[in-house]
Structures are given as C-alpha cells and as structure tokens.
Nucleic acid binder design. Structure first.
Lengths: 233, 233
DNA sequence: CGGGTCTTTGAGTTAAGTCAATTTTCGTGG
DNA sequence: CCACGAAAATTGACTTAACTCAAAGACCCG
C-alpha cells in the first residue's frame, strides 16, 4: 500500500467509478497500477458458462501489480461492485517509485509473496479438497482478513476507506461473524455453482461447522489464516 | 536467476540430492531459497487421494522464493525427480543480496510476476475450461518454455545445467515436439486423473489438436505462450 | 531376463453441474 | 409505511464429466 507521499510523488490520479463499472479487461495491455481508496472491486475472468473471481479487493489494497512485468497484460478483468474511488498510477511512475524507494520495493515484494501464497493455496485446495472444505477455507481466509482490517482501523466508517464488505461484517455476541458474501460470489471464487454452495453450506450448518440464520452465513474463527500479512487482489 | 557472483556473495552452498529426495515439506518454516543447477524438481502438495503438482522446476530456475516474506512457510513440498544439484541460499543472505543489488531485486520481482501470472492463468483454466483445453494450455506453456530454454542454450548437454525434460524434448522434422511428461505428471499438474488424461488425449489426437505416436505425445506450437518471460517453479 | 514404471481399456459410481420454478430479501419511489 | 421490481436464496428432478476400481499390455533399466 502506497502512502499519500508516495502517491503524490508518482503523480497518482484519483478516479471515481460507479458500481458495476469495468476498470479494465483481461488481456488488455497493462498500463496502470491501482490502489483502492473506497468501495470494492472484483478481479475476474469470464468463461462461457460462468465467471471466475480471482479475488475481491478491499480499500487500502492494491491491484494490477503485474504491470511491473516486462510487456504487461492484465491477468483479469477488474469491475467495481459498488461506487468506488481508486488511485491510478502510471506503470513508469510506479517503476521509478520502486527504484527510488528500496523500502517500498521490499514492501511491494512482500505483497507479491502474499498474492502468490494465496493463489497457490487456493489452487491446491481446488484440486485436493471437497467443496465443503473449500468453502470453509475461503470463508476463514476472508474472515481473518476482514477482522485484521477492522483491528488496524483500515475500514472505519468515518475515514475515506469504506468497505462495503466490512460494513456488513457484523459480529454477534457469541463470536460468530456474518459472512458478507453472496452465495454467487462464493461460488465464483471457488469455481462452483450457486446451487452447490447452497447445498454444501446447509450440510456445513448441519455439521456445526458454520451457522445459517435468516439466510445469512455465520462463521466462527478457528483455523489459522492463510500465510501472508497482507491480502490478495 | 542468480549469477555466480551473486551466489558467491550470498554464500550459497551447492547441494546434491539423489532422485526422489524431498528437499523440504509443505508447511515447514521456510529458511532457504533455491536455484536449480542440474536435474529436475517438482513442487507439490499431498492430498488424501492424489498429489497436486504446483509446478516443475528446470535447471536455472529458482524455487522457494516465498522465503522473503515475513514469517515464511513452505507453500509446497519440493522433491527431486532425478539426481539433482541445487544452490541453497540462506534467507537472510538473500534478503541482504536483494538489498544491495537493486537490479537483482527488480529481476526477482519480475520472477514473482511470472509466477503469479502462471498460477493465475492455471487457476482460471481449471475453473473455466474443459479437460481437453487445460491439457493443451499446459502442454503449450511448457513447450514454449522448453523451446526458449533450448534457444538460449540453458540446457545444453555439455554444460552443467542438464535438464531431464529438455533432453527428452526431441523435435521431429514436421515441427512437432515430443512432450516429455508422463500422463501422471500431466494429471497431477491439472488436478485430473491419469485415466481422464489418457482418454482426453486420445480425443485430442483424433481431433488433430495434438499427436500420439508410439505412446508418446507430440505437440505443435501454435498459440502464444502464457505471459511471462521467465517460468514458474 | 525380471521387476518396476507407464500406458490403456472397460465397467460402474458420484460429486457437481444443469434446468426450471418458487420464495425471500431489500432498496426505491410513491 | 407500502407496493414493485431486481437480486439473492432455495429446492427438486435429472444429466454428466470426471473419478474409481480392476486388469491388461508395453516399455525401459540394470
């Protein structure tokens, strides 16, 4: 995450997009690096029959970091879920910024490690685990992430960095978190179908591994989070 | 990839391992960074019923780059496929090396971008494409990679950097490459079953999308390679 | 030549997908 | 506060790509 000074030094421009607006398409030549200020974005690929969500981006997180590669191409499409405010940095400016600030470059590299860890985990989960375990892992990962965000105050309603997900992440007295994703989003993040998620979630509820109440999904933190201090985008 | 000077500066040690030797296990605290000198390594995760191969590592490539994260944990197990020679670098030494050599750090970052690109592509492929297309994409990716290696001379038999895969990558006159993977390896890289790969490959042969001859798989380059100048490990 | 590794095939099973229809939730304007 | 339409959640019946299991062949190395 870039500080205000870094953003200024890189001549970052603040952009506002309405909900459901596509910021860029998969396959386009990548020219920009992004840092989400407020709102929410999904990074996804389109298939014939369904979309695949690579990850959801929260305020304060960056996306499009692969621009720093040689001959960059967008690995996914980026679409706003809600009204969104985002900092946009030119590729060349980012490269220069990293060159001039070794500490920032190191931080950037750690971000890359976290992204890689996330995708690596998810990839082996998809292959090796049944739907139920995949759902738990996903929910667990995002629950940890959102809690961490709340604790560090990144998502306070009084700051600019509002996050539609964290707003919905209410915590009930018994330590259960309300999972702020729709069944469809969960399905798209795991490459499953809504109906499969539905049925599996009901089984998980019956098995006491999570809780369903008034159509909402509640999860109690237990397992350790995926590796990585930061989070994917 | 680290030069001889870099390796020396980082006090890298050269290690030899026999075939089928496990260099490290998934989940272990990560303490080292590796650069393959000769041989071949697979990075994989174990499941109840099958393994999942994250990627195959070729001579000249690095693996274990996630050690540079804070609190590093191995994302996969690493096992030699053949007799293998590998440079081993201490985490702290690597960090220091990157700190002192911005150009190397930049190169390292590009390697991370390539890894991320690879896993991102494969992840959406798994979700969105049928088995046949997945196999083609995989074969195409590695074919491009091995050809590039040959062209840049990384894999000459007279150098130290021998690669069991590239040795088997013979090219027939009509532009078809012999794919040097077993059906099982292909299956494990895609999260499919040997039998599925078998049957699908036969269909692909019938459809003229690749060729089967004396139990060997031949592929003709066509589609562009996945993004990334380097390759995954 | 013998054992171990790969490749193949066939038959039967299954988790997940597909399709279609219904109910609930929820934001918005009246 | 309520009606209305869009979005999300549910359910049931049916289909299917891929997995399982078992058993042969083929190939390669020492």
């Amino acid at each position: 995450m870039l500080s205000a000074e870094h953003l200024a030094a890189a001549h970052a421009r603040l952009r506002r997009y309405p909900a459901k607006h596509t910021i860029y398409w998969e396959g386009e030549p990548g020219s920009f690096f992004y840092q989400l200020q407020a709102g929410a974005v999904r990074l996804y690929s389109c298939g014939q029959r369904q979309d695949f969500i690579h990850s959801l981006v929260f305020p304060g997180e960056t996306f499009g970091e692969t621009v720093i590669g040689t001959n960059p191409v967008a690995l996914s499409s980026a679409e706003t879920l809600t009204d969104t405010v985002v900092w946009v940095v030119q590729r060349a400016e980012l490269l220069e910024l990293l060159r001039q600030h070794p500490a920032l470059h190191a931080k950037f590299t750690r971000r890359m490690v976290d992204l890689l860890s996330f995708h690596t985990h998810m990839r082996s989960n998809t292959t090796l685990l049944p739907a139920a375990e995949q759902i738990l892992q996903l929910v667990n990962y995002y629950a940890h992430k959102m809690l961490a965000r709340r604790n560090e105050g990144s998502c306070q309603p009084d700051t600019a960095q509002q996050c539609s997900f964290c707003e919905r992440l209410s915590e009930s007295a018994d330590g259960y978190l309300c999972v702020p994703f729709t069944r469809q989003q969960i399905a798209d993040m795991l490459g499953l179908r809504v109906e499969t998620v539905m049925r599996t979630v009901k089984e998980l509820d019956a098995a006491g591994r999570l809780r369903l109440h008034e159509h909402k999904l509640y999860y109690r933190l237990s397992q350790p989070a995926l590796a990585g201090s930061d989070s994917p985008a």
